[in-house]
Amino acid sequence: MEWQFFISIAMFALVMTGTPGPNNVMLTASGANFGYRRSLPHAFGIGVGLMSMVFLLASGLGLIFQQYPIIQEAMKWIGSGYLLYLAWKIANAKPSSGHSDITSKPMTFIEAALFQYLNPKAWMMMVTAIGSFSLEGGEYWWSILVIAAIFWIFQIQTSSIWVGFGTLIGRWLSSSSAWRRFNLCMGSLTAVCVVFIW
């Protein structure tokens, strides 16, 4: 494989994982509300979810979507509904009190991994990556491993930046009203992501 192959995937992965979308908006909100360390399982769960999607799509799941488009349509509706539910939870979250509120908690590793299957941006990223960068013949599975590994590396880095950004914002929010406005803003941005599904 040529270096151009690796660079192309890396650039695509950087843009796709680094730009705003449901994952990054929720990571920012999590960083602000729960701090950097407590948000890390959320970030790592995203990476595992994306990698599992790569292997499922490479194994033929994409063909099922082509043969039965109703499945993809149903996932759009379910994903939209779940995203709106998460947006409502974020918008109505109680103001942070020094990250010590044990009644609320960040998204877990498993929840974040499973959320990718309802995240339209995740499907678009993985379908495009496999369609654009996978190689034919004997190098097919090797190229799939490379795609998964590069996406995981870049996703961890960009997710860490978004969580860190949220953590910094959380330090600046000093009043309950500021927290409410921030959470309402993050919830609204999460809800807006539904527009991109349709």
Results as ranks from 00 to 15, higher is better:
residue 54 V to P: 00
residue 169 I to T: 05
residue 176 S to Y: 10
residue 153 I to K: 04
residue 47 G to I: 12
residue 163 V to N: 12
residue 104 S to C: 14
residue 153 I to S: 07
residue 103 T to R: 09
residue 175 S to P: 08
residue 139 E to S: 15
residue 69 P to K: 03
residue 88 W to P: 10
residue 150 I to P: 11
residue 162 W to M: 04
residue 110 I to Y: 13
residue 142 W to I: 15
residue 5 F to R: 09
residue 60 G to R: 11
residue 21 G to F: 07
residue 153 I to G: 01
residue 131 G to F: 02
residue 174 S to V: 15
residue 107 M to C: 08
residue 93 A to Y: 04
residue 107 M to F: 03
residue 86 L to I: 06
residue 46 I to K: 03
residue 142 W to D: 11
residue 114 L to K: 10
residue 135 L to Q: 15
residue 164 G to P: 13
residue 142 W to V: 15
residue 57 L to F: 12
residue 51 M to F: 06
residue 10 A to K: 04
residue 137 G to W: 12
residue 146 V to P: 05
residue 143 S to Y: 04
residue 123 W to A: 06
residue 151 F to H: 09
residue 46 I to L: 04
residue 152 W to D: 11
residue 20 P to Q: 03
residue 135 L to W: 02
residue 107 M to G: 04
residue 115 F to K: 06
residue 105 K to H: 12
residue 32 A to V: 13
residue 143 S to F: 07
residue 19 T to A: 14
residue 161 I to L: 14
residue 146 V to C: 15
residue 138 G to K: 10
residue 18 G to Y: 10
residue 23 N to V: 07
residue 69 P to S: 01
residue 131 G to W: 07
residue 60 G to I: 14
residue 154 F to H: 05
residue 87 A to W: 05
residue 91 A to T: 01
residue 93 A to H: 06
residue 65 F to P: 11
residue 186 M to F: 06
residue 106 P to C: 08
residue 161 I to F: 08
residue 13 A to M: 08
residue 191 A to H: 03
residue 141 W to C: 01
residue 184 L to A: 04
residue 157 Q to C: 13
residue 120 P to E: 04
residue 192 V to Q: 09
residue 118 L to C: 03
residue 39 S to M: 02
residue 74 A to D: 02
residue 92 N to D: 01
residue 3 W to N: 14
residue 72 Q to P: 02
residue 165 F to A: 15
residue 121 K to S: 10
residue 66 Q to D: 14
residue 186 M to L: 01
residue 56 L to M: 13
residue 156 I to H: 07
residue 95 P to D: 01
residue 58 A to N: 03
residue 83 L to W: 00
residue 196 F to M: 11
residue 67 Q to W: 03
residue 37 R to G: 05
residue 170 G to D: 14
residue 94 K to N: 12
residue 88 W to G: 01
residue 39 S to W: 00
residue 171 R to T: 08
residue 192 V to S: 09
residue 170 G to Q: 09
residue 195 V to W: 05
residue 6 F to P: 09
residue 150 I to A: 06
residue 182 F to P: 02
residue 179 W to A: 07
residue 80 S to K: 02
residue 107 M to Q: 06
residue 121 K to M: 11
residue 116 Q to Y: 09
residue 27 L to H: 02
residue 91 A to F: 00
residue 127 V to Y: 05
residue 22 P to A: 15
residue 56 L to K: 03
residue 17 T to N: 08
residue 189 L to Q: 03
residue 58 A to F: 05
residue 98 G to K: 11
residue 52 S to H: 03
residue 146 V to L: 00
residue 89 K to N: 05
residue 159 S to A: 15
residue 115 F to P: 12
residue 42 H to M: 09
residue 106 P to W: 09
residue 35 G to F: 07
residue 194 V to P: 02
residue 163 V to P: 01
residue 117 Y to P: 01
residue 48 V to W: 10
residue 113 A to Y: 07
residue 10 A to R: 02
residue 197 I to A: 14
residue 51 M to Q: 13
residue 51 M to Y: 07
residue 190 T to Y: 00
residue 60 G to F: 11
residue 99 H to R: 14
residue 109 F to W: 10
residue 30 S to K: 00
residue 41 P to M: 12
residue 164 G to M: 11
residue 129 A to H: 12
residue 187 G to N: 04
residue 94 K to F: 00
